[in-house]
């Protein structure tokens, strides 16, 4: 029983990050929270069967991503969530964004244009702070594949935000 309680605590502790990740994927608060709720429902239904393989956190992200991808499959092709409707850009891209940040609107737009698998990968490491090994396990891909996805995603962001002046042969290698 003690183990189960710990498991529940771990699940609870992960919820804020899951909400953040879901929001970054969907760019719609209500849809993001729906996704997290579905994820919780699934996780909580089987948490008692947890045998401690891998981290609880990685397991939760895998559940969330599965549900997210199922949602994408159901969405008719060609329909994309509108950035404009999300309000993210309007709210956060005011002039004078903090020093050191790029123009947030540009970043948001560039993120929206990334292929889905690159966005999923980049957000796991850049936003959720996962190590390569953990993120690769969450995505079910090899670390090398993950690295090349990250490389492409970061290069695309860099190009889109007008900071590719230093782009060298390095980015061309991928």
């Amino acid at each position: 029983m003690g183990a189960s309680v710990t498991m529940l605590d771990e699940i609870e502790a992960a919820i804020p990050s899951l909400r953040r990740y879901a929001f970054a994927l969907l760019r719609d608060r209500a849809a993001a929270d729906d996704l997290v709720q579905d994820c919780l429902e699934r996780a909580l239904a089987r948490h008692a069967g947890w045998r401690g393989e891998g981290s609880v956190r990685a397991w939760l992200y895998r559940i969330l991503l599965n549900l997210y991808r199922d949602g994408l499959r159901r969405r008719p092709a060609g329909v994309h969530l509108s950035l404009v409707n999300s309000g993210v850009v309007a709210e956060l891209a005011r002039p004078g964004a903090q020093e050191g940040h790029m123009a947030l609107a540009e970043v948001a737009t560039a993120m929206a244009k990334l292929p889905d698998d690159q966005r999923q990968a980049l957000l796991l490491v850049a936003l959720e702070g996962m190590r390569l090994a953990e993120a690769a396990a969450v995505l079910g891909i090899a670390e090398g594949t993950l690295a090349s996805r990250l490389g492409r995603a970061r290069a695309a962001l860099r190009a889109a935000t007008g900071r590719d002046e230093s782009r060298s042969e390095r980015t061309a290698e991928t």
Binding site: R20, A97, H101, M102, V107, L122, L127, R158
Partner: peptide, 10 residues
């Protein structure tokens, strides 16, 4: 900078 922007956004 990219990571800081993503954190600021989401």
């Amino acid at each position: 900078r990219q990571d800081a922007s993503l954190t600021a956004l989401y």
